[in-house]
């Protein structure tokens, strides 16, 4: 066992290194005292200071967080339902609806949603239109993961619950949800990062005069990748990390409490 574990660890460390080396560069250059991301000149916090004085950027970050949280919430909810329904009921239409947005090039989804919002719904573009658009393309990602989790799972446990007279809701809440939880969390994380990072669909579905982070960053990058952009990225990661850690801590505390209760 130990030899295979060692082998796994080295492969995993390589993968993590692959993921984190570019990131290290991003973070490092956010403290670099040079406008060009080219070589190390000296340490500075100037870019963070500039960032905190950039009202538009802060507003954009806030807007994007709201969008990402709302979109990932609704996509996780709908995607989990879709994943469950597809697995359980052998549906014909739903799988196509769920998985085709994943198969569709982003730009097409962006343009078609824009046409739809403007010419069919006559909606004023804004946060709502972006949230809807992001939800649409995230649902598929969540559903795929949830379904992969359910596939090949022992069905007898659900049967047993039903035999014991559990209602569908009870079965879901007490059996299914805990079992698929890792997939739900993974799907939520994925939707969040997809949403906060999306440029193409956001560009098309955003309204007038509302700064959104990916657009703002794209605007800055078009001129040049300045360390200020790196600073934004670093802060975003930090914020995400903190949010997830707090959620994890709360869950752990909850679990202890629940564990105690269950023990009685």
């Amino acid at each position: 066992m130990s030899r295979s574990t060692r082998w796994l660890w080295s492969a995993a460390i390589l993968a993590y290194a692959f993921l984190y080396i570019p990131l290290a560069i991003v973070v490092m250059y956010s403290f670099n005292d040079s406008r060009l991301n080219a070589e190390w000149v000296g340490f500075t916090l100037f870019w963070y200071e500039a960032l905190l004085n950039n009202k538009e950027m802060l507003l954009a970050a806030r807007n994007s967080l709201i969008i990402a949280l709302s979109a990932s919430f609704s996509a996780t909810l709908l995607g989990t339902m879709a994943g469950l329904a597809i697995h359980r009921y052998k549906l014909k239409v739903l799988p196509v609806l769920v998985f085709t947005p994943v198969a569709m090039p982003e730009i097409l989804l962006g343009v078609s949603l824009l046409l739809f919002f403007l010419q069919v719904l006559n909606l004023t573009l804004g946060m709502i239109s972006i949230i809807i658009a992001h939800t649409t393309f995230c649902i598929g990602f969540v559903a795929v993961i949830v379904r992969a989790r359910l596939q090949g799972m022992d069905e007898s446990i659900f049967e047993a619950a039903r035999d014991l007279g559990a209602s569908p809701w009870q079965t879901f809440r007490l059996i299914t949800l805990p079992l698929i939880m890792p997939a739900v969390v993974a799907g939520a994380l994925m939707s969040f990062t997809l949403s906060i990072d999306d440029f193409v669909i956001t560009f098309f579905t955003k309204g007038v005069g509302e700064p959104i982070l990916p657009i703002q960053i794209y605007t800055m990058i078009k001129v040049a990748v300045t360390p200020e952009v790196n600073a934004v990225s670093t802060l975003l990661m930090l914020l995400t990390l903190i949010m997830i850690i707090i959620a994890g801590k709360l869950e752990a505390r909850n679990m202890e409490a629940a564990g105690g209760e269950a023990g009685k």
Binding site: L174, P178, A247, L250, E251, N254, G259
Partner: peptide, 18 residues
């Protein structure tokens, strides 16, 4: 830990994340 409790904690965690 009972299944019931674990389900509740997960729901709680989701709500708190939100």
């Amino acid at each position: 830990m009972s299944i019931r409790a674990s389900a509740r904690t997960h729901l709680g965690a989701i709500l708190l994340f939100l």
